[in-house]
Design a protein around this nucleic acid. Structure first.
Lengths: 344, 344
DNA sequence: TTGAAAGCGCTAACAG
DNA sequence: CTGTTAGCGCTTTCAA
């Protein structure tokens, strides 16, 4: 593999000159530039990334810490993030963690390894201590779908979205509106619970324990999955005649699991139980699920834009952005006519 | 940020010694090791990744080139790859590309930038030329869901899977069995087409153009998406009385789009049209779709295992692994009783 | 406009 | 067992 010395020798110039044309630096005469360019091409020369990082004190790499992304939400977000990062000419290194403490390990490493120029933290909480460390070390970080006072944060309005969803159900006239949530370790799960409670309160209804079921799987996941929705709904249906006629489920994929449970018990959506989800994943449309749409792609893009600003030195304080969610009304609440043959 | 000199000074040793304890090298007396460790802890020292890479000529980083992963298949695969990579103590950098020529750009960069120790190439073809370059440069690479003579390849048996799916439909007694495929630029799309044709031939049936529709969207994607399935099915249904009664769709997500089209035309699955998909994504179960299951996680894990072997110097030739697909029979072909209330 | 030289922080070979 | 030293390949002064 050719290095910068080979190029310099072949072009008959010093390595400094080669470096300058590489970095499009000014003040290079056209003839020399041409010679260097020719040598580069002839030798198939490409600068060595690690050497550049070391010399420049900059990696041209962004990191992204994200919970294990089985879910559609993470996949889509990651996709947007990757695209945008690459548009900026940067590489993306992916750290995925469970909700447990491994997160801290990654943060510590990221902070000290100088592996990346900036970090995106997705759907994950950050402690005050680590927030301070990032600030002190001036390592750019932006939170996505999460929030911290001192750090740039981009979030979707989980609380408000849950409020809207719950209110929708209440306004439809359902008496008891239940909620199935993800693991309360998860930030969005907690926020959605708040919105749910607030909507209840706003309409003079009491929060009842028996109508709230959070995912209690003890695994590493966030509880936003089909199984959790299925078992959560079963629990609700086991209330028998007391069972709720409407339920706000905190993610579409769980909602689909919940609908399966309803079906397996010989009941129907929305006749027996109305369901609202959250996310608006692709399948939501297919199954006719009323849900709260999140602008996932926009979030990812904005996050990278902002992170790159920070990396490039724009350090004005306190960038907070909140995206609104949008209620997408389909058939699962009975608000529109029921479709009969949506499936096999 | 403390560097190795600071640590050495504080511990009262040379930097070589610090390096040795860092790299768990042998022959360090316990007292010195303790001193060094103490200094490291006191200074919150972490080695500088770029400097290590430069000196070691090794990055401890794996790369993964993957088509834009909207689809569930890529998300799941990537998830497995990331987990496994991190188990090996390596970082993962993500390159995602469209099916067009940007791929070449990435390959070229990967080859010369020394950014990664090895590369996973997912669902993407590689030309002989690039294959040779990787070999010549001894840059480890393993193909996943793709194949090249000279390179380690792990694939699912797309051809055979498509054959099985098609045969299933034929054996069920359907006369005309159509196929809806992804973009023929995509490797799996082409292989599945082959399997389909072979199954037809094996049962003495002619391949008919009008019963085959490939995604002709001209965008960057692979055509494995709902819209493509929807419009493909519409095309088939437009054949009127000539329309096929059974169709093999080359991915589940397309199959779901196809089922939507069927529904929107007032027809039913499987009564009017039987459908088999490919992938067995999570939702397939929900919608009762008969499909071919791929062992996605296993593929991802095996790929990383193998790549790490290569990176660590095991260079025996020719590692090829093919995973079989499995026919998962549900309701969309009429092979089992029809469920009536799968949806809202 | 250009060349020379001094690092960037670490590993590894070489003495001792 | 441990200290010293010579790179790894590049960027960036500093002179010229």
């Amino acid at each position: 593999m050719a290095n910068i010395y080979d190029v310099a020798k072949r072009a008959g110039v010093g390595i400094g000159t080669v470096s300058r044309v590489l970095n499009k630096s000014s003040h290079i005469s056209d003839p020399t530039r041409q010679k260097v360019l020719a040598a580069i091409k002839a030798l198939h020369y490409q600068p060595h990334t690690a050497a550049q990082s070391l010399a420049r004190r900059r990696t041209n790499t962004l990191g992204c810490v994200i919970p294990f992304f089985t879910g559609n939400f993470f996949a889509q977000l990651l996709c947007a993030v990757q695209k945008k990062t690459s548009e900026f000419g940067n590489d993306l290194v992916l750290y995925s963690v469970d909700l447990a403490n491994k997160k801290e390990t990654f943060l510590r490493r990221v902070l000290s390894e100088k592996r990346v120029d900036g970090l995106l933290l997705v759907s994950l909480e950050i402690t005050d201590e680590y927030a301070k460390r990032f600030l002190r070390q001036k390592l750019p970080i932006v939170l996505v779908d999460s929030f911290h006072d001192q750090l740039d944060s981009i979030k979707v309005d989980n609380d408000e979205g849950a409020h809207t969803a719950t209110t929708h159900l209440i306004k439809l006239g359902y008496d008891k509106v239940a909620m199935i949530d993800g693991q309360l370790k998860s930030v969005p799960a907690r926020l959605r619970l708040e919105g749910y409670k607030r909507a209840l309160a706003d309409h003079g209804r009491a929060f009842e324990e028996r109508y709230f079921v959070a995912c209690d799987f003890t695994d590493e996941a966030d509880g936003f999955n089909r199984e959790a929705g299925y078992s959560g709904m079963l629990q609700l249906l086991d209330l028998g005649s007391q069972r709720p006629r409407a339920v706000f489920v905190s993610s579409d994929i769980q909602a689909i699991g919940a609908m399966e449970a309803i079906r397996d018990r010989g009941l129907k959506v929305p006749d027996d139980v109305a369901v609202v989800g959250f996310d608006d994943i692709e399948l939501a449309q297919y199954v006719g699920l009323t849900t709260m749409r999140q602008p996932i792609l926009e979030m990812g893009e904005l996050a990278v834009d902002r992170l790159m600003e920070l990396v490039r030195g724009k350090r004005e304080k306190d960038f907070k952005h909140r995206f609104a969610t949008e209620l997408i009304i389909r058939e699962s609440c009975g608000a529109k006519r029921r479709l009969d043959h949506r499936l096999v």
